[in-house]
Design a protein around this nucleic acid. Sequence first.
DNA 1: CCAAGGTGATTAATCGTTTAATCAACCATA
DNA 2: TATGGTTGATTAAACGATTAATCACCTTGG
Lengths: 353, 353
Amino acid sequence: MSVGRTPATMTEIAAALGVSSATVSNALSGKGRVSAELSAKIRQAADELGYVPSHAARALRTGRTAVIGLVLPDISNPLFPQIAQAIEQAAAAAGYGVLIADSRGEIAQQTAAIGRLVERGVDGMIVVPRRGSRIGDVGTPIAIIDSPSTPGNTVSSDHRDGGVQMGRHLASLGHQKVLLIANSRQSNVQNDRVGGLEAGLGSDACCETLWVEEMEVSQGVGCALGLAARVADGYTAFAAVYDLLALRALTELQRDGIDVPLQASVSGFDDLVWSSVVMPPITTLRQNLAMIAERAVEALGGVIAERDAATRKPASVERNGAGVPMTLVIRQSTGPTMYSVVAAAAHARKDSR
Amino acid sequence: MSVGRTPATMTEIAAALGVSSATVSNALSGKGRVSAELSAKIRQAADELGYVPSHAARALRTGRTAVIGLVLPDISNPLFPQIAQAIEQAAAAAGYGVLIADSRGEIAQQTAAIGRLVERGVDGMIVVPRRGSRIGDVGTPIAIIDSPSTPGNTVSSDHRDGGVQMGRHLASLGHQKVLLIANSRQSNVQNDRVGGLEAGLGSDACCETLWVEEMEVSQGVGCALGLAARVADGYTAFAAVYDLLALRALTELQRDGIDVPLQASVSGFDDLVWSSVVMPPITTLRQNLAMIAERAVEALGGVIAERDAATRKPASVERNGAGVPMTLVIRQSTGPTMYSVVAAAAHARKDSR
DNA sequence: CCAAGGTGATTAATCGTTTAATCAACCATA
DNA sequence: TATGGTTGATTAAACGATTAATCACCTTGG
């Protein structure tokens, strides 16, 4: 291949064609006034010489780096890869590179990470904030991916509606007594989902929410959730607020000899990798991360454009749009309660004979 | 805060102190000859004025961007977040920013992603290659994270030794008939782990390897692995080559009413998020990703330094070091076989009376 | 007293692109 | 034939840091 060559510069192209470098710049950017024929010749020469624009020079001159930062919270979040992938793809399509910064859980680290990105001169950044934290103005355009209830330039899934969908799904299967499993009351996302679930299940359903984080302070991290007892207590479904909790519930139930979904249904959120490979595969809600990423990048691009139009205000425009819909993925971890199954079976028996 | 200010430049510092900008540069970089007192004054002024070096200008002048690229394979790999985090941390410590590039599984995408990074002028890149792919010379320093059996400038865990550790652990629990569960024969990492497991279990153990990928071509993706039948067949342990497979095995066994670890043990690799929260928590091997990342960044830094010392060869130095050790994390998914438990219980009963 | 050497600072060029300002033709209109 | 407007290209000045070359000054030794 022709790799390894010293990449040609505009000046070289200009010299090769006997024109000025300004003309080359104009031709390639399509900005100034260049005759069509010369423009074509320049483009061709650029191709032949293997011209690669110098991002550094361009950044120096224009003050824009064409790089955005991606700040992520506790990276242990298994949804992270998908978000990162989606953002990277959307950013690449919009001509941006993506610089990552991990905030390692700590809120101070989040600020530090943002600072590092700013120093590196990113044009803007997309932040998935640590739950319960607020991002201050850093003089750089920011877009936030969190929950629609977060103020600011936010884009996110419609977590509440997702909850509603799942709630309706469970209700339609006949579940009346449902345990909602969440982790932290601090999380906007989790609260939205819980709210949605309650709404979707309807007012005649009996549901309680188990906040795992609180349970763990007394019983230790990774403690059993005591779900078998709940089943004995009449609960027929466990709706977790994200798949990791769903998995925890599923395995605990199975270990205690409870059949899923025959004796109890289990559902989650986010459709993480394992959700489809465990046995039974988990019913969950998938986020449209590609769309979220696109919107985030687009929103960010908008703010960036505005900002260098009016180089006055850092202008963190509030363009909080509608939430991106989530799609329900029904698998085998949810089903009718055993009683309805039995009833239906009896019904079928009667019918068939 | 003092954010939002126009960041001061070297020229401004120089003007404020009535010295030349070259002196400021020398003082701050500690390179040229500057008197100690002037140097101190300059440093102080830099602080007060809130000097932030322009990466763009520096990059333009020196040709080095202080950014490295991180190329990842199928991003769905749940280990990815941890790798990314570790790399980011190590890179930040070494003064590098990390630009991500996702190769979305496709091998062509991998090449494209690498190309994009090169165009952006990264100083080097760290590649976690798609399994079975080889990276060509792109005229940019590269470090690879894969398996010690990969040629090139590679750093990785000692997967084989990890397998040996797990094999010994299982053997010590009395397991003689073990099913190894892997996905693809193409993967160096998986092959290393399988080899290690076989070695660790010893020659008198009976073990077979189940290649899930091959099974799925005939039975469909996500098919049952038929482990219950294996248990009936005398298998007492299932050693998966990564945690996702272990999870799949665990849930399948539990669904079929087999008690883990009483009737069968299950083990994995990588200690992914869920491994500790499922019930029972999974025995696994943890990679020392922090160390791997450090070494990768360090190795890359070395190659970069060499390259701009001798601006001749692209010099992808072969500095294939020893594998980084993995650590065995014993949890509740592995235990003695039921028979030995029964035997031990009988033994105990006899002893106590 | 002069040459040699060291020290601390400055000068000026350079990296590659962008862009405002300028200029030379050329055509059309008064 | 001047005047004015277009068109197509050039000039030259940035952007901010680095660095080789130079310079002025001071010390030291012969």
